[in-house]
């Protein structure tokens, strides 16, 4: 099996899956981005919001929003781990901008 066939299989399989995940009503990118900060925080704390399913549905269909979601999740976790936005942040966090 060649790499090309693998890639085509991946693309085709993913496309069929997302196609059938299509909902009659989906939120658009603007709506998704409005809910994103709370969604990411809920993800970090393990809380489940009432609108999680709607947001997840958009994520599966939209590569750009997926990218923003992954990025925000990453930095919010880093903030929590290194305590940036608390008053103890200054000395423990990433040493930049001196």
């Amino acid at each position: 099996m060649s790499g090309k066939e693998n890639l085509e299989q991946k693309i085709f399989t993913r496309w069929i899956e997302t196609l059938f995940e299509t909902q009659e009503h989906e939120i658009d990118c603007k709506q998704f981005q409005n809910y994103l900060p709370a969604f990411v925080e809920a993800e970090v704390t393990g809380e489940r919001l009432g609108y999680t399913a709607v947001l997840t549905a958009h994520l599966h269909q939209c590569p750009d929003c997926e990218e923003i979601y992954q990025g925000l999740l990453f930095v919010v976790k880093a903030d929590l781990a290194e305590n940036w936005s608390s008053d103890t942040a200054a000395d423990t966090a990433v040493p930049i901008g001196d």
């Binding site: 981005q33 409005n34 994103l36 900060p37 990411v40 925080e41 990025g71 925000l72 930095v75 936005s85």
Partner: peptide, 22 residues
């Protein structure tokens, strides 16, 4: 004026930075 207050202000603000970068 569009900050909804349903998340930490910093989380909301970080979204703008990630958006700019991405």
């Amino acid at each position: 004026d569009k900050f909804r207050g349903d998340a930490q202000f910093t989380t909301w603000a970080y979204r703008f930075a990630i958006n700019e970068a991405a």
